[in-house]
Structures are given as structure tokens and as C-alpha cells.
Design a protein around this nucleic acid. Structure first.
Length: 472
RNA sequence: CACCCCGUAGCUCAAUUGGAUAGAGCAUCCGCCUUCUAAGCGGACGGUUACAGGUUCGAUUCCUGUCGGGGUGGCCA
């Protein structure tokens, strides 16, 4: 992957909504996948493709108008207000087809440049982005560019024109659609038709239009050799159609198609076994989850290490709290659905981030007590001898294999499994063989094992997005 | 009805892509802090891999069917 230009699309939330637990996965998985790709030497562009141009804006604008609401971007409750209005609008348009048409009309006005709707839209996006950024900061997520759907509003006409010119798209029930007859379910002969609708019957763009425009932009502007889309698994059909359409379009127009990968993940389910949705019920807010995680981690470090200064305990609480949530999500295969659970996401014992971070802490503590920097004191080291030393040395050698496995299909859980095994091997070694001993050769080789463990653990943890701590 | 995920220990999940006796964590039980941080270490308990066939020297993995859960299916993303 060295030197390849890769664009990764994440976490790409929809705007005007507060982040809830459902937003955890694209952030956490996207970040880990991005770091894995970057670690292999790829020239990576992190593109946050926010949903800021869809029908939801029509619904939201309509709801704001109907409620006579005055949006104040400075108000601390601005986002909550928008979310409440969106829910009202969503329910209203669902119940009444006339209102749904009105919402579509508001969207069409926005998309055709209506000044009032554009001004309102800008404010909404501003409020939303500021709120998202506060969450990203806590997850250490940094995007290179935010090119949402709206960025492509003047680039979709070229898509329509080219698809029509190459006879890839055709009119159907007033919309512009692309059929893929080679795939039975996307074919025009399918029992239930599932065309790739690139332009709606009212002339406005949708997900497909902007995604095609985005594909072209990434290929031409970023010169992408590869594009990685990190989204949930419910969008598999969409990406399948997007990739098929992109392939035919680029071939017909003599362009080189980047490698396209859909790195999808399973859904976080509610207690009822159904996907967590903003519409039904009240999902746990992501900020609430973070706060709770940090609080519990702070309490844990305070009880275990009360002598540390409060500022350091606070910092450790922040690091461990978010790390625990992150690891809980990353440690199982991303294609699996899982049911939301406070206790699972906030566990600090067993196969968890704190356990892995603890291994690093114990290594660093040994070096601190020895008055050495990590990596020093290895002169005169002999080969591993005890069973625990040998097992640890062997496990250290398996790092690259684990990395390869995680990279193969961009599945971070393979790295998690490995790091847990390494931490366990270190735990056994730590209990069985003292490092600070009189025999200089034994001490040197054990210090060497410690520093190697530290290096591999820290590298692996950072790839997962977890920042190791000195003490805990 | 069609297509896509999934079904593994009481619970949550792995299993190097078809390899040897299916492994971890949690929970439960029994040990271990007077030497480097016990968020730890050692041990016990726990399985007809949903079910039925098939391919193979060998199947949790591949194929067919059945059952069960979730998702998607013309103008959301």
C-alpha cells in the first residue's frame, strides 16, 4: 500500500442530529481502519462526507417554518431544538403525504439556491458541525477535509449528463435511473424493482447523485488510487450499485477507476433487538456515554492510586474511559451486530482496553524504578530461557502476522485479539519472572522483553486509536 | 416474495479464510499482595458449533434445504 493515495470516507454523520451510541461505530472503526491504512505507508486523505444535503433538510426546514422557530446558533440548546423539530417534522411528514411533498419542495428550493433556505441551512450545518467536533475531539479524531453532500451540489449535473451520454442512465417514472441487468436484483426484470436512482422525479439530487459526483471528485482532485467507505451494513446494496455504476461510467468515459472498498459494520441494537433509531425511542447520547465512562475510570484510578495528583487522575480517566468504549466496539468482528450494553462498553477488567494499557503501565513502572528509559539496559542480554520468557518472545514475533490479518480485510478485531494475547503473555511473565534481579544477563534479557512488549503494545494501541498512559 | 448479514459454553465474543484436542473474557467456585502497580496471576467448571443432508483424508468454515433473529427492497441516507 506504500505511496498509494487512499481516500477514506468516515465518520460521515447526518447533520442536525445529536450524536448517540449509533454514531460510535463509524467513529471508532473508521479511525482504526484509517490508522491501519496509514501505518502501511499510504498517503491518506480523511474525508468526512457529512449528510448535509438530503431530504432531512427539507423536513427540518419545513418543521422550523411551521413552528415559527428562530434558530440561534449561539444558543446552547440549538442542536437539541433542531433535533426535536426534526422529530416532529419527521412524524408529521410520515403521517401526511401533503406535508411530505411540502418538505420535498423545501429541499428543492434549497437545492435551487433559494436565499432564505440557504441561509437557514448554513446555520443548521454550523450548529451541527460544532457539536460533532466536540465529540470528535474526545475520540482524537481529526479529519483532513469535510466535503459533505452539499459540496457536490454543482457537480451533479455533469454526472447526469455523462451517464445519459454513455446511455448508462435512462428515464423511469420521471426519475433518472441506472439498471444493472447482470445483477438479478438490480435488473429491470426484477420482481421488485431496485434501480439506482441518480436523480429524483422532482429534479433534485439524492445520495446516489452526490456519491457519484464524489467518486469523480476523489478520482480527479485527490487522484485517489483507492477509496474506502466506512458505513453500516444496511448500505451494502447502495454501495454495490454505486460501484457497478462507477465502473461502467469510468470505463465508458476512459477514466481509471480507483479501487473501491465498502468497509461495513453491523448495527448497534437496542434492548428490544431492533436497530437504535432516532425516530423510535430515545437512544443513549454519545456524550452521556463518554461522561459516564470517564467518571467510572476516574473513580477506579482514584481508588487504586489515590496518591496521584488529581489533574493526572482526570487525564487518566479521560484516556481510559474512551479507550474502554473504543476497545469494546473494536474487539469483535465489525460485521457483527451487537446489543447496546452499559456494562459491556464500560468494563475495565478482562479483555478490555484498561487491561492492555495496564501491561504498558507495568512495563513503564519497571523502567522508572530502574532509573532507565524504555529500551535501555539491554547490553549483555542472553536468549530467553524460562517458559514465560519464551512464550512472550514468541508472541512478540507474531505482531506482523496479526497486523497483516487486520489489514487484509480491514478488520481491527484481529489486532485486538493479538494485543490481548500479548498482554496476557506479559502478565504471565510478569508474575513468574522478576525483572529487577541481581544476575546482569537475566536482568538485561528481561528488560529487553519488557521494552519490546512496550513498543509493540503502544504501536498496536495507537493503531486502535488508544493512547497509552504512564500510570493508572 | 427476493437479496444481504447472523445463529459457537449460562452471557458477550474468537477461531490464522478448509487443518490437529473449537479458544478468550464475564459470571460461579478454589488459591495468590512483606520484592517491579492485584484494572493482575494460577487453577476448576462450562460445547452434539441452530437442525438435516452433501463435498472432502479432514467442515464452525464450502454447497443444498429447514428453522430462528436482524436488515434492505423507486425517489431517506
Amino acid at each position: 500500500m506504500g505511496g498509494r493515495k487512499v481516500v477514506i470516507d468516515y465518520p460521515s454523520p447526518n447533520t442536525a442530529k445529536q450524536m448517540h451510541v449509533g454514531h460510535l461505530r463509524p467513529i471508532v472503526i473508521g479511525e482504526a481502519v484509517a490508522r491501519l491504512i496509514e501505518f502501511c505507508g499510504a498517503d491518506l486523505v480523511r474525508d468526512n462526507h457529512i449528510g448535509d444535503w438530503g431530504t432531512n433538510f427539507g423536513i427540518l426546514i419545513l418543521a422550523i417554518r411551521r413552528a415559527g422557530f428562530q434558530l440561534d446558533a449561539k444558543s446552547p440548546t440549538a442542536l437539541e431544538d433542531l433535533e426535536r423539530l426534526y422529530k416532529e417534522g419527521s412524524a408529521a411528514t410520515k403521517a401526511d403525504p401533503v406535508l411530505m411533498d411540502a418538505a420535498r419542495a423545501e429541499l428543492a428550493k434549497l437545492q435551487s439556491g433559494d436565499p432564505a433556505n440557504t441561509a437557514l441551512w448554513k446555520e443548521i450545518v454550523e450548529v451541527s458541525n460544532a457539536a460533532c467536533q466536540r465529540i470528535y475531539d474526545q475520540f482524537g479524531l481529526k479529519t483532513d477535509v469535510i466535503l459533505g453532500e452539499s459540496f457536490y451540489r454543482d457537480k451533479v449535473d455533469q454526472v447526469y449528463a455523462e451517464l445519459a451520454k454513455h446511455k448508462l442512465a435512462e428515464e423511469s417514472e420521471g426519475a433518472l435511473v441506472v439498471w444493472h441487468d447482470e445483477e438479478p436484483r438490480f435488473s429491470r426484470d426484477a420482481e421488485t424493482k431496485m434501480p439506482f436512482i441518480v436523480r429524483k422525479k422532482d429534479g433534485s439530487s439524492n445520495y446516489a447523485s452526490t456519491d457519484l459526483a464524489t467518486l469523480l471528485y476523489r478520482a480527479e482532485h485527490f487522484k485517489a488510487d483507492e477509496i474506502v467507505y466506512v458505513t453500516d451494513g444496511r448500505q451494502q446494496d447502495h454501495f454495490h450499485q454505486l460501484f457497478l455504476t462507477g465502473g461502467k461510467w469510468f470505463k465508458a468515459s476512459g477514466r481509471k477507476l480507483p479501487r473501491l472498498r465498502h468497509v461495513w459494520f453491523g448495527t448497534i441494537l437496542g434492548e428490544d433487538g431492533k436497530a437504535i433509531k432516532t425516530k423510535s425511542g430515545e437512544p443513549v447520547r454519545l456524550q452521556e456515554l463518554i461522561d459516564q465512562a470517564e467518571k467510572l475510570a476516574f473513580e477506579a484510578v482514584t481508588s487504586k492510586n489515590p496518591d496521584l495528583p488529581e489533574s493526572e487522575r482526570k487525564a487518566i480517566g479521560k484516556a481510559i474511559g474512551v479507550a474502554a468504549m473504543r476497545y469494546a466496539d473494536l474487539s469483535s468482528n465489525r460485521t457483527m451486530d451487537y446489543t447496546f450494553s452499559w456494562t459491556k462498553l464500560l468494563a475495565f477488567e478482562g479483555n478490555t482496553a484498561p487491561y492492555l494499557m495496564y501491561a504498558v503501565v507495568r512495563v513503564r513502572s519497571i523502567f522508572r524504578k530502574s532509573g532507565l528509559a524504555v529500551g535501555q539496559g539491554e547490553e549483555g542480554a542472553t536468549d530467553p530461557e524460562t517458559p514465560a520468557e519464551i512464550a512472550l518472545a514468541r508472541k512478540l514475533l507474531a505482531f506482523t502476522a496479526a497486523l497483516d490479518q487486520a489489514l487484509e480485510e480491514l478488520r481491527p478485531h484481529h489486532l485486538c485479539t493479538y494485543l490481548h494475547e500479548l498482554a496476557a503473555a506479559y502478565g504471565t511473565f510478569y508474575a513468574a519472572d522478576s525483572v529487577i534481579v541481581d544476575d546482569p544477563a537475566v536482568k538485561a534479557r528481561r528488560l529487553m522483553l519488557c521494552s519490546r512488549t512496550c513498543a509493540v503494545m503502544e504501536t498496536g494501541l495507537r493503531l486502535l486509536g488508544i493512547e497509552p498512559v504512564e500510570r493508572m
